[in-house]
Simulated scan of single mutants.
Amino acid sequence: MFSYGSYPPGPVRLDEREPEALDTARFGAHPVSADDVVFGDEDGVLFVAAEHAEEVLATAHRIRETEREQARRIVAGETLRRQTAFDDYLARRAADPEYTFRRHLRRIGGAIEE
């Protein structure tokens, strides 16, 4: 059995709330209000100003379609390694340590976030 010791099991007083107390919330250093939209999935949560929600949704749909096409190609026998020309990336990276995989994906037209 759990014991609270000398601590009461709940609040012991009700303080007056500031008028804006329920208008915003803070997540770390970031204020969130009713003017924001929240998206979440297994990977995390994203807070977006409502004015940018349509743009974020359009980007999410493009990413989803790209990932579905990649999956379709994998089922058809083409590995993701081949789809991303990973061997070419490794060769370029060996010649240029500053060459990143993101840069490589941009070069081959495989970057899904852009």
Results as ranks from 00 to 15, higher is better:
A94E: 10
D23S: 10
S33I: 00
R93V: 00
H104C: 03
E98D: 15
D41H: 04
T59K: 13
E54N: 03
I74R: 13
F2E: 05
M1W: 05
R82T: 10
G5C: 03
R17F: 13
R72L: 10
F47C: 14
A94C: 11
R92T: 01
G44H: 06
F47H: 05
R72I: 00
R81F: 15
G109V: 03
R62E: 07
L80D: 02
A95T: 02
F2V: 06
L57T: 02
A25Q: 11
L22D: 11
L57W: 04
R82Q: 14
F39V: 07
V75Q: 11
L80G: 15
V75F: 08
T59D: 10
A34V: 08
G77E: 01
T24R: 12
L14N: 14
A111N: 07
D35T: 04
F39L: 15
V32C: 07
L46T: 07
A71C: 09
P97V: 01
D23H: 08
I63R: 03
R93K: 14
S6D: 11
V45E: 00
E54H: 04
A76Y: 04
G28A: 06
A34T: 08
R103A: 14
E51L: 08
A34C: 10
A34W: 05
R103E: 10
R73T: 02
V32W: 01
R92N: 06
D15T: 04
R81K: 13
T79Y: 09
V56L: 04
L80W: 06
A85F: 09
R26H: 12
Q83G: 06
S3N: 09
F86H: 12
A25Y: 08
R62T: 06
V32E: 00
G10P: 01
A49M: 01
Q83P: 08
D96P: 01
G28L: 06
P19E: 05
V75T: 07
